[in-house]
Design a protein around this nucleic acid. Structure first.
Lengths: 339, 339
DNA sequence: ATATATTACTAAACCGCTTTAGTTTTTATT
DNA sequence: AATAAAAACTAAAGCGGTTTAGTAATATAT
C-alpha cells in the first residue's frame, strides 16, 4: 500500500484535483459538488487512507495549523507541565504544537523564533530567556501572533500570561513573619528577568510593610548555571553563628531543593533552626523531610489561557487587542516553616 | 523590513533563482558559480536576513530535517528529560525536533505518527503506548526510519533503545533480600508493556533465585489512570496485621511517591517497619523522608543513542541494519531500605 | 580555422496542495 | 425558441523552494 496523493484520487475517480480538494476540505456543499460525487471522494479517500501532505498544504495555505512553543528548558518540570497543557488545549482547537528549548540562551531563542516562523507556525508561545527584548520587539512589530508565558518584558506591550510573582513571594514572606521569623533571607537567581525581580520585590515589600529594614546581606543571588555551588556558599554565610537567619525564602523549586540538601548536610534542623519556603515546587515536595511549604503556580491555567489568547489572535477574532493575564498563586502550607 | 524570498534576491541581483538557490545551499563551487557572484548572493542574503521557507524547501526536497518525538506524556519528568537530550543531540546533527504526547492513548499515537509523517518528518523517535503493535508494524513495513525508546515490542524487529528492566528490578529486589527482608511485595502498573512485564519478571527472578516462592497476593497491579486510589487499597492490604510485608518494590517513581504518601498517612515507619525501593526517580527523592533508594535510568544515553541510531538510518549510512540497545541502570542506595 | 571543452549561468518543470476564474450542461423563465 | 440562472464541475496559476537539462560565451586543442 503505497502513498496516495490528491492527484491519484482525481485520476482514479476521473475528477479534477479541484473537486477532490474542495470535498476533502468540507467545502463540497458550498461549492455545489453533488452528494454522490462527494461520497465517492470521501469513501475513496478513507479506503485508501489518504492523508494530505501538510507541507504542501501549509505552503499553499500560508499557514500550518501549528503553534510553536519555546521554553527555556523542557526538562524543567514546570515547563514540561506547561507544555503538556498547551498541547492539550491546542489540540482542542485543532492545532499541533511544535516545541523547542532555548536552554536559557537568547541567541538560541532568536534562532528558534526564526526557524519556527520559517516552518510556518501560525503563532508562538514563548517563555523567553532573560534579555531578549530585541527579538520580542521585532516579533511584535512584524505583527506575528504570539503570547509570552511565565516571563514577560514589562516595557513591551504584548500578550502575556504570567503569575503574580510579587504577590506570591510577599505572601510567602508574610507567612514566615506570621510564624514569628525575624531574620529572613532570600535566595534567588541572578537575573534581569522581571519575574525574578518581582519575586525579590515581593520579599522586600513584605518586610518593609512589617517595618523591617532590608538587609542586603540576607539577599543572595546565585548564577543559574552554577547554582549548586553558589547555594552552598550562600547557605554557609547565612548560617554563620554570628548572624544566623531563622528562615530562607527560595524563589524557585530547584533552589529550595539544593538549599535543603545543604542545610541537611550541615546538620541544621529544618524548620526548628531555620524555616524554608519555596516558590513553585517539585513532584515530591510533600514527601520531603520536612514537607516543604511552597507556592503553587496555576500551570494548567497558564497553558490554557496562553493557547486561547494565541488562537484568538491567529484567527483575528479580536484584532489589535492585547490580552494580559496575571494569575494568582496558591500557598501550600506544609511543615518547613514550623507548625 | 518585509519578508524576502528567493525570487526577490534573484530579481534584485539580476540572476536566476537557480543560481541563487545553488549558492545558498553551498553548492556554488561544484556548480561553477563564480566567486564574485557567490559573494554577491551571500552578502545580499545576509544583509536582508533571508531565511528560506522550510515548508517549500521540505516539499521540494521531500524531507524536512526534522525528527518527530512521540512520548506518552511530556509532563512526566522522565520523558521530559529524554526529550531534552534528544533535542540537544538532534541539534548537533542539524535536525529540529517536533514533539507530541500520546497521553498513553494508542489511537492518539496512531494519529500522531501519521500527522508527523504528513508533516514530512524525516524520522521518528517513539516511546510507544502499550498495545500499538499494529501501527508500529505498519511503520516498519513502510520502511520509514524510526527508533523506539523506553518501550518496545519484543515481537517486532525494530531499532530500539531501552534499559535492562529485568536486571534493574532484580537488582533492587536482591538489595532488599541482602538487607534481610523476607516478605517483599511488588506494586506495578497493570500493563501489557514489555517494560512492565520485565520489571515484574525481575522481581520474580530475584525471589526465585533466592529460593522464595512467589506469592501472587504480594503483587499488586494498579491502573495507570487510577493509581492513586488503587495504591491506597494495595498498601492497606499489604500492611494488614495478619500478613504484613516488610518491603515494597515500586516499578516507577510516581507509584513510589504515592505509596510512601499512603504509608506515612497510615503512620507506618519507613524503613523500620517497611522498606521501599523505587525504579526510576523524581527530582527530590534524595530529600524525601526517608531518602528513597532508587534505580536511576541513563536518560541522556537513551536520548543520545536514539538520535544517533535514527540519524544513521535516515541518512542510510548503514542500510537495513537493526540497532538494539539495552542499557544498564544504576542503583542509588539511600535510606529507605534500612541502613 | 574548426571542433571541443569549460565556464557561468538559466528556463522551466516539479514537489502536492489550494483557489480563482472559468466552462459545460441542465433546468427554469419569458 | 431564446435567454437567464443554477448546478456541477475543471484548467491553470500559485505557494517558495530545488533540480534537470539545457544555453551562450569564451578558452583550448587539433
Amino acid at each position: 500500500m503505497k502513498e496516495i496523493f490528491l492527484k491519484d484520487i482525481a485520476e482514479k475517480l476521473k475528477l479534477s484535483k479541484t473537486t477532490v480538494s474542495l470535498v476533502l476540505n468540507n467545502r463540497g456543499d458550498e461549492n455545489k459538488i453533488s452528494k454522490a460525487t462527494q461520497k465517492r471522494i470521501l469513501d475513496f479517500a478513507r479506503d485508501n487512507n489518504y492523508k494530505p501532505n501538510q507541507l504542501a498544504r501549509g505552503l499553499s495555505l500560508g499557514k500550518s495549523e501549528t503553534i510553536g512553543l519555546i521554553v527555556p528548558n523542557i526538562s524543567d518540570i514546570f515547563y514540561a507541565r506547561i507544555a503538556h497543557y498547551i498541547e492539550l488545549k491546542a489540540k482542542e482547537f485543532g492545532y499541533t504544537v511544535v516545541f523547542s528549548s532555548s536552554n536559557e540562551n537568547a541567541e538560541t531563542e532568536k534562532e528558534l523564533i526564526h526557524s519556527m516562523i520559517n516552518r510556518q507556525v501560525d503563532g508562538l508561545v514563548i517563555a523567553s530567556t532573560q534579555c531578549n527584548q530585541a527579538d520580542i520587539l521585532r516579533l511584535k512589530k512584524s505583527k506575528f501572533p504570539f503570547v509570552l508565558v511565565d516571563r514577560h518584558y514589562p516595557e513591551i506591550m504584548t500578550n502575556y500570561v504570567i503569575v503574580d510573582n510579587l504577590g506570591g513571594v510577599k505572601n510567602m514572606t508574610e507567612h514566615l513573619l506570621k510564624n514569628g521569623k525575624k531574620n529572613i533571607a532570600l535566595i534567588t537567581i541572578k537575573s534581569e528577568l522581571d519575574a525574578m525581580q518581582q519575586r525579590r520585590l515581593g520579599y522586600e515589600t513584605a518586610l518593609r510593610e512589617s517595618g523591617i529594614d532590608i538587609n542586603t546581606n540576607l539577599i543572595k543571588e546565585v548564577d543559574r548555571f552554577n547554582f549548586e555551588a553558589e547555594i552552598k556558599d550562600a547557605i554557609r554565610e547565612l548560617t554563620n553563628d554570628s548572624n544566623r537567619v531563622d528562615a530562607i525564602v527560595f524563589t524557585t523549586h530547584y533552589l529550595a531543593a539544593s538549599g535543603l540538601r545543604e542545610l541537611k548536610s550541615l546538620g541544621i534542623n529544618v524548620p526548628n533552626e531555620i524555616a524554608i519556603i519555596s516558590f513553585d515546587e517539585l513532584g515530591a515536595f510533600d514527601l520531603v523531610d520536612p514537607p516543604i511549604t511552597s507556592t503553587k503556580q496555576p500551570v494548567s491555567d497558564i497553558g490554557n489561557l496562553a493557547v486561547e489568547i494565541l488562537v484568538n489572535e491567529i484567527e483575528k477574532k479580536n484584532k489589535e487587542s492585547i490580552n494580559q493575564q496575571i494569575l494568582q498563586t496558591q500557598l501550600l502550607v506544609r511543615k518547613s516553616c514550623g507548625v
